Simulated scan of single mutants.
Amino acid sequence: MIRTVVGELRPEGLGICDAHDHLFFRSALLVGQELDDAAAALAEVGEFAAVGGQAIVQWTPHGLGRRVEELPGISTRTGVSLIAATGLHRAEHYPEGFVEKVRPRLAEIFHAELTVGIGNSSVRAGLIKVAGGFHRLDEHARFVMAAAAEAHHTTGAPIAIHHELGSAADAVLDLLVDRLDVPPSSVILGHLNRFPDSRAHLDLAKRGAWLAFDGPSRANNATDPQLLACLAALIDGGYGDRLLLGGDTTTAKARGATGEGPGMSFLLTTLRPRLTGAFGADAADAIFRSNPARAFAW
């Protein structure tokens, strides 16, 4: 099953999916560009639905303004399945003292948000989102990933990773898979477009993890022109069944419906036709439909 904010869903019912995005997000590093407007979130999802979108995976983790109370209503009103996340981001995204407060209970928090509900709501998370550092895993990242692995082993929930500028994905697999016994099929490596090294991507694919490319996003504009070349190398290498694609909207300005764009709908109005033209309809359908259905299933 796949756990959405309104209940469990059979994987084949997920449909066309934005595999990494944010409807609500509040970070200490993005003051003034918070995503916390419910009307704007509804408009963004509605625009995505209007061009054929059927599911969105929100990677916003614990403590960063997930606004989970809004998610079931948005899902119901638009007909788009939404998946919420538990987990913890890099320490600098949080107010001073927050990480120290939750650190002793991390595995307990993750497990509760996956099985009982987030906060005082009955909305349960459908994945665990954690983060690495730039080319290395610091003590915070290792501690959080150990808690994520513990929660995975008690629930089966997938673990999605923010890689700082797309780096250190090999170190994440060394830790989660080789040392903490998380199956690579339950690991989603995010932001790989920010480190457009196809040889490195092929090495990661050989280890069995999911490879997530996020874009276009204002944070990724320098690597957007290399996206299709990175995907082509993996598809040619036989790993088209391990690829995911998301919009990764992290600021109000980047929304399509109420900001300057490109927004979530760009994935389907512009990127999907390009993928279809370059790799064929079956490859594009795998990236947007069948791969997410397997990646986010417990």
Results as ranks from 00 to 15, higher is better:
R67C: 13
V68T: 10
V68S: 03
V68Y: 01
E69S: 12
E69A: 13
L71N: 05
P72R: 09
G73W: 10
I74M: 00
I74Y: 00
I74G: 00
S75F: 00
S75G: 10
T76Y: 08
T76S: 14
T76D: 12
T78F: 00
G79H: 00
G79R: 01
S81W: 10
I83D: 03
I83A: 03
I83W: 00
A84C: 02
A84Y: 03
T86H: 06
G87C: 09
L88I: 11
L88V: 13
H89T: 07
E92T: 15
E92K: 13
E92I: 15
H93E: 14
H93S: 13
Y94G: 04
P95A: 01
P95Y: 06
E96C: 10
G97T: 07
F98A: 02
V99W: 08
E100I: 04
K101E: 15
K101S: 15
V102Q: 02
R103I: 08
R105W: 12
L106F: 04
L106W: 01
L106N: 02
L106I: 01
F110K: 06
F110T: 03
H111N: 14
H111I: 03
H111V: 07
A112F: 07
E113S: 11
E113L: 10
T115S: 07
V116N: 13
V116Y: 12
G117E: 04
I118T: 08
N120F: 07
N120L: 14
S121F: 02
S121H: 05
S122P: 04
V123A: 05
R124I: 09
R124Y: 08
A125G: 05
A125R: 01
G126N: 02
G126C: 01
L127M: 13
L127P: 00
I128L: 06
I128C: 08
I128Q: 06
V130W: 01
V130L: 02
V130K: 05
